[in-house]
Amino acid sequence: MTTRYRVAGTDDFTDDSDRIICEVDGLEIGVFYVDGEYYALANYCVHQGAPLCEGQVTGEMAVDDNWEWQYDHDPCVVTCPWHEWKFDLETGVNISDERYVTPTFETEVEDGAVYVLR
């Protein structure tokens, strides 16, 4: 059974790339607002238990068709503040090794409130 938890108002997110870390049903979850979308993932790095959601949110460098480096906003990743492991905000997958995944949660927005489904 899925339960919907109100975690914040949309106006609690002050700007793009903002986040709120909260407790939902005994689990600490980071809710991110990036480019008009909300993402939620466990505030726990699967590497050594660091507070993952306290890390920097960025895109990544990628090589284009001409073999030149370019900054790509997709995927949007959060970088673990302890050992710099990077996880895709949407999927929770480590961008260097798909074996490592942090749990993600569906979000909903209704009447100016942001909800996490768990």
Results as ranks from 00 to 15, higher is better:
His47Lys: 13
Arg118Phe: 06
Thr10Ile: 07
Val57His: 05
Ala8Trp: 08
Gly36Gln: 11
Val57Leu: 05
Tyr5Thr: 12
Ser96Leu: 01
Glu110Pro: 10
Pro75Glu: 01
Asp16Lys: 14
Gly55Lys: 09
Glu106Pro: 15
Gly49Asp: 00
Gly49Pro: 14
Trp85Ser: 00
Thr107Ile: 15
Gly92Val: 01
Thr2Glu: 10
Ile95Trp: 05
Phe105Arg: 13
Glu60Ala: 02
Phe32Lys: 05
Thr102Ala: 11
Glu54Pro: 08
Tyr44Arg: 15
Arg99Ser: 09
Pro103Asn: 14
Glu37Ala: 13
Ile21Val: 09
Pro75Gly: 01
Arg118Ile: 07
Arg19Tyr: 04
Asp35Cys: 12
Val46Ile: 11
Asn43His: 07
Arg4Cys: 04
Gly9Val: 03
Val24Pro: 15
Asp65Leu: 09
Glu106Ser: 14
Gln70Pro: 05
Tyr33Cys: 10
Glu28Phe: 05
Asn43Ala: 02
Thr107Arg: 15
Asn66Cys: 06
Val34Lys: 14
Val31Ile: 10
Cys53Ser: 11
Gly36Val: 06
Val101Arg: 14
Ser17Gln: 12
Val116Ala: 02
Tyr115Pro: 13
Ile95Asp: 00
Leu52Val: 01
Val114Lys: 14
Val31Arg: 11
Lys86Thr: 03
Gly36Trp: 07
Glu108Ala: 14
Cys76Ala: 06
Glu106Met: 13
Asn94Ile: 02
Asp74Lys: 12
Asn94Thr: 03
Thr10Asn: 06
Tyr115Trp: 09
Lys86Gly: 06
Ser17Pro: 07
Phe13Asn: 09
Asp111Trp: 08
Cys53Lys: 13
Thr58Leu: 05
Tyr115Thr: 09
Ile20Cys: 08
Glu28Ile: 02
Phe87Cys: 05
Tyr115Met: 03
Glu90Met: 12
Leu52Phe: 04
Asp65Val: 11
Tyr38Asn: 07
Ala113Val: 14
Ala8Thr: 15
Tyr71Ala: 01
Glu37Asp: 10
Ala62Arg: 15
Ala40His: 09
Tyr71His: 03
Thr107Val: 15
Asp11Cys: 09
Tyr33Arg: 15
Thr14Gln: 10
Glu110His: 13
Thr79Tyr: 01
Asp15Glu: 08
Lys86Arg: 15
Arg6Ile: 03
Glu90Ile: 07
Asp74Tyr: 08
Pro103Trp: 10
Arg19Ile: 02
Pro51Asp: 01
Asp25Tyr: 01
Asp25Asn: 06
Glu68Met: 04
Glu23Gly: 11
